[in-house]
Design a protein around this nucleic acid. Structure first.
Length: 569
RNA sequence: GAUCUCGUAGCUCAGCUGGUAGAGCAAUACACUUUUAAUGUAUGGGUCCUGGGUUCGAGUCCCAGCGGGAUCACCA
């Protein structure tokens, strides 16, 4: 296959061949032993210290008989100084003059060995005594420049390219790497918090026969051997509860969930939720636990409990406010939902401009009112508690009011980040609630839950009182890393699959009898498919090709008209 | 799924009421042994997303498609 290479790519490929011709393997197999990272060179600077480090060559500045560049490794960048006489101590200066000056390019991986020193301008640098080519880069990276004040020029910003080629984004945009390092630190801090308390990290099925535990459209697949439909999980809740039935005191899982729904800046078809279930606890305990956990995460991962998100400052250090759903709606609409009928709620929702329809039950109506008028108001971490029973089919009824449930959601910056219950463990009530969902489904609510009979059976064997909590990891990471879109906190966000032009196949051209040395030029001259070539007049092809040959000064025999006629048969 | 908007050099972007494409950086060549957005001089580089249409003439106007982004709907 012939690729259309840019002039810069051709230069790099030629450099690759020239390196080989000089006996330098551009992709050597041997380990390059590293004794320091760029960060260590700076943090543990000692004049004259011998270091060996490896990374990408960035921003080469050729000064004649000496050159400066930066070497970028996983920890950052350090300047390197390459001087003819140091790198070529003998008479033969060709390594510097040819290899360093002409055959190395921006983005190449190299290893260097040398002593640390500080330049006149005060920058810690490696005075290179030996340089090893570790891997040639055949495509030029986008060049991003930064001045002394930290202003960035010509940034690589196109979101499509950044997400499709995250590997390039990571190399070139420093902040991107920071976000993902923080993401891992956040996850590690959570894990550490749970493990310290003796809770067990578990794995439950991703491929499920019944997509339960949440209301969402699943991705459907098929198991060939069993000849049954299977679903990618939309939640793992029901499996973790089965484990509580089985006798574990506390289990948690970082669950990759899949939902076949819209994609936007806060939704990706696959996303991560951490779910934890702890036996003998209730949702009050879980609020304290969640609050402590988030504080721990902030301290461990960010070294602060005060987080900047856009214009807003979010304080995880102060106690989180706790507001009931009823209070919240009363506060922001003046309407008291207590004891109201479905008709009354319907009328009120309609009166404040919410689009309503007949499929909506009480729970849905309350949820809509809250979503429209209240949700956005809670910028600081706030627990919204005591949701109506219709909205929460897996949650235990409130101990003081059977129309409510013992549920809370944690709101941060007006968005739901965590959701928790005193889990419903009465199997008879649970069955009734599932049936209620079924009737909602019949009314046309396509998000109502499926009934999982095995889950009900497990409940019938007895589940201890348990509190469970789920937290949207991607969303939490967004808030803690000051990113407005989920795509920025996922390495490879879902994108429409990219189409690669397969390009012309030289073999097809050769099959027509076109000389091998001509095939490439026939394609470049514009006949990029066999069909196109055959559709053209032989005389025109003949003239075009010989014109092309002359223009590009090709040292191959001109084509004859009879030859061209032969190809067209 | 709907509406708006964008697609020009490797990257970031100009290109007015239609007249056959520009800049900076990157590349190439030369100069320069402590520079740092290095500098100076010179050179090369484009299917203006694709396909139609209007026009003497389309990067520019119109239509359709493809691909992004934003807003909305759904959802976490």
């Amino acid at each position: 296959m012939i690729q259309n290479l840019s002039p810069e790519e051709i230069v790099r490929r030629e450099a690759l061949e020239k390196l080989r011709a000089k006996g330098i393997e551009p992709f050597p197999a041997a380990e390059f032993k590293v004794t320091a990272t760029s960060q260590e060179c700076i943090d543990q600077y000692e004049e004259g210290r011998e270091v060996r480090l490896a990374g990408r060559l960035m921003n080469m500045r050729d000064m004649g008989k000496a050159s400066f560049a930066h070497l970028q490794d996983a920890t950052g960048r350090v300047q390197i100084y390459i001087n003819v006489d140091s790198i070529c101590p003998s008479e033969d200066k060709s390594f510097y003059k040819e290899v360093v000056k002409h055959l190395l390019h921006f983005g190449d991986f190299i290893g260097v060995e040398g002593k640390l020193f500080t330049t006149k301008m005060g920058e810690i640098s490696v005075h290179v005594a030996q340089l090893t080519v570790l891997a040639k880069s055949l495509k030029p990276l986008p060049v991003v420049k930064k001045d002394e004040a930290g202003n960035i020029y010509d940034a690589f910003t196109d979101p499509e390219l950044r997400y499709r080629m995250r590997y390039v984004d990571l190399v070139v945009n420093d902040k991107v790497k920071e976000t993902f390092i923080k993401r891992t630190r956040i996850v590690n801090a959570m894990r550490e918090f749970f493990n310290e308390r003796g809770y067990l990290e578990v794995d439950t099925p991703v491929l499920q026969a019944i997509p339960g535990g949440a209301s969402a459209r699943p991705f459907v697949t098929h198991h060939n051997a069993l000849d049954v439909p299977m679903y990618l999980r939309i939640a793992n809740e029901l499996y973790l509860k089965r484990l509580i039935v089985g006798g574990f005191d506390g289990v948690y899982e970082f669950s990759r969930n899949f939902r076949n729904e819209g994609m936007d800046r806060t939704h990706n078809p696959e996303f991560t939720v951490m779910e934890i279930y702890v036996a003998y606890k209730d949702y009050h305990w879980m609020m304290d636990f969640t609050e402590a956990m988030l504080r721990h995460v902030c301290e461990k991962a960010l070294q602060t409990t005060v987080v900047q998100f856009g214009e807003k400052t979010i304080d995880f250090g102060k106690p989180f406010a706790r507001v009931s759903m009823t209070e919240a709606i009363q506060r922001y609409t003046g309407f008291d939902i207590t004891g109201k009928s479905e008709q009354e709620l319907f009328a009120f929702a309609q009166s404040i401009g919410i689009e309503v329809n007949a499929t909506m039950g009480k729970g849905k109506l309350i949820d809509e009112i809250f979503g429209a008028k209240c949700e956005g108001q809670f910028v600081q971490p706030t627990f919204i508690t005591d949701y109506p029973v219709e909205m929460s089919p897996l949650c235990k009824r409130h101990r003081d009011n059977p129309e409510l449930t013992e549920r809370f959601e944690l709101m941060i910056n007006g968005k739901e980040v965590a959701n928790a219950y005193s889990e419903l463990n009465d199997p008879i009530d649970q069955r009734a609630r599932f049936e209620e969902q079924l009737s909602l489904q019949e009314r046309g609510d396509d998000e109502a839950m499926f009934i999982d009979q095995d889950f009900l059976r497990a409940m019938e064997y007895g589940m201890p009182p348990t509190s469970g909590m789920g937290i949207g990891v991607d969303r939490l990471v967004m808030f803690l890393t000051n990113n407005e879109t989920i795509q920025e906190v996922l390495f490879f966000p879902q994108m429409r699959p990219e189409k690669f032009e397969s390009g012309p196949n030289p073999k097809e051209f050769e099959a027509l009898g076109i000389p091998v040395e001509w095939v490439e030029h026939v394609i470049k001259a514009g006949y990029d498919s066999v069909e196109k070539l055959k559709a053209a007049k032989p005389t025109a092809v003949h003239q075009t090709l010989n014109g092309y040959r002359k223009k590009n000064k090709l040292e191959i025999p001109a084509v004859q008209l009879e030859e061209v006629n032969g190809w067209m048969l």
